[in-house]
Amino acid sequence: MIDTSTGSTPQPAFDPAPRQPTAESLARWLVQHVAAYTRLSADAIDRTAPLTGYGLDSVAALSLCGDIEDEFDLAVEPTVAWDHPTVEALVAYLLDALGPRPETA
């Protein structure tokens, strides 16, 4: 194992999702990601429109599962954005999957 995190991998600065996400915080987090991937402004993302409508290639959409796993420590299928193709649908899915979680310190 090698750690090469030393400064060579600039990450987009996202607000971390709050520990107990709400529909609104999840939606904002997702919109930020989609906007960054598609180089659009967050305002331009319609939460009820298919993500592929923004030119997000269906194969590229698979890697969203990694962002979700990182952020929420939740393993989801790579096809999560195919089965829940809008921000709104993804939020509903994530709320359900995350469930009410005990506060961890």
Binding site: S8, P10, P12, A36, Y37, R39, Y54
Partner: peptide, 20 residues
């Protein structure tokens, strides 16, 4: 290892390249 780091750093700089 150094080339790998370099190539992955290039990749990290291209993460927003998912549409164009």
């Amino acid at each position: 290892p150094a080339v790998m780091d370099e190539v992955h750093a290039e990749m990290a700089g291209l993460l927003d390249a998912r549409t164009e």
